[in-house]
Design a protein around this nucleic acid. Structure first.
Lengths: 233, 233
DNA sequence: CCAAAAGTGTTCGAATTACACCCATGA
DNA sequence: TCATGGGTGTAATTCGAACACTTTTGG
């Protein structure tokens, strides 16, 4: 049974916008790939590829990301779909963008070299191919909205982190300073962090206490109508 | 020059989720179509169709909506893209959903009959084909979030409306009562409504003052960092 | 002992909530 | 005149913003 005959078919791609947070540099970084095929071969792009016959969009995004970067089991979430006629000069391609937040240490140290993947600060991005600049801008705006209302910040930090690091992350995203006392008051009042018996001693003599995000406690609160709101200053 | 050869091509559809507000019934309604082709011919669906070779996704959505309902110049905004393998039993189809808010009087009175389009309350929707139920649920959730932070409510009301009607709309969306005095205080304090010299006299002896949304004033405020927030009770 | 970063409370104004009665009118 | 729906204000509380000093410790 052949249905829908006569309807035009399209090339469909997925593009993965991967953000990570660099604790040392206090910068959000974006994963970029040197494009290996024409057109625009050698130019910077996000990790993308075509959707195959026998895979869902979500599966395609995971596969493409794994192939280009080695990153596996990422929590990719669909962002937006781009379908202007001439967005890709090589052919008419419809592209579905996905984004993910990762802990930078999840990328094995040599993977970057191995896969021609590079991390670049979102503050100094190079020119990207096609409409990838727009895709990134859209995803970033979405991330900035999300982080106010969902505890997505913890996806970008290691298991153990200090309150100073968490605050630095918010400042990196908002690009403005945040009041330390108000920030701590607010996040601690949510009761979703556990203070550990261990200090981070690299960056100060005094040392800063490590904390841990308690996902289970957050989920219980959520079920009871708790509303995460870290809209600071 | 044939690039990207060997990559699989896909059927791509757009589906339009059109919401309207029925002032008299105080209900949000959804535009449904009796499907005219196999599979699932005669079943309820939202307005959809395939994307052609020479049109953008946005253009396809407008065209499809116009053809099926007569609705023209709608402000459609892209919601989400659905790409599971078996979502459409007829073939592998990737579908991009769009949604729009319209004033119910924008639909010419006989258009419904003419085009086999029907308005159904979102509270008692029939079974929809494929994953259209999910699409609608997703769009509705999005609308509920939006209406808190953007003055989208005015898209659903006629040019002139009363504060009671506006409040009824919010209650229809939230499905819970809203405090009358606090609601009025908040919306009037925003200074984006103009009281007209005219009363709505159909529903009460006293009559309720008509108001008008002043889009220009809203836009000026927005530019100055004003933040619409009608998160009530 | 001192430099450097971590940690800690209070006050003030604004915003949000809860709540009940009077008003205007047509029938 | 009365039934119906429209319109109004205030007090109590909570929330958000601003703000500066003390603590710890390795060198």
């Amino acid at each position: 049974m052949k249905l829908y005959k006569g309807s035009h078919k399209h090339l469909v791609a997925v593009d993965c916008i991967i953000f990570a947070y660099d604790i040392a540099e206090k910068e959000i970084k974006l994963l970029l790939i040197k494009r290996s095929i024409e057109p625009a071969k050698g130019k910077w792009s996000v990790a993308g590829g075509f959707v195959q016959d026998d895979e869902s969009l979500d599966a395609a995004a995971s596969r493409v990301l794994k192939r280009l970067t080695g990153l596996d089991h990422m929590h990719l979430s669909q962002s937006s779909t781009y379908g202007s006629l001439n967005r890709d000069p090589g052919a008419r391609v419809i592209s579905v963008s996905y984004s993910a937040l990762i802990k930078i240490q999840d990328l094995s140290p040599d993977a970057a070299g191995l896969y021609h993947a590079h991390w670049r600060s979102i503050l100094k991005l190079p020119e990207l191919i096609f409409d990838h600049g727009t895709m990134v801008a859209d995803a970033l705006e979405n991330l900035r909205e999300q982080i106010k209302r969902k505890p997505v910040g913890f996806e970008l930090l290691p298991e153990k982190f200090t309150l100073v690091q968490l605050q630095d992350l918010y400042e990196a995203l908002y690009q403005r300073p945040v009041d330390k006392r108000n920030f701590r008051k607010k996040i601690l009042a949510m009761n979703i962090l556990e203070k550990l018996d261990e200090k981070e001693k690299e960056t100060s003599r005094k040392g800063a206490w490590y904390y841990r995000f308690i996902r289970e406690r957050y989920q219980v609160l959520t079920r009871n109508g708790f509303y995460f709101n870290l809209d600071v200053n």
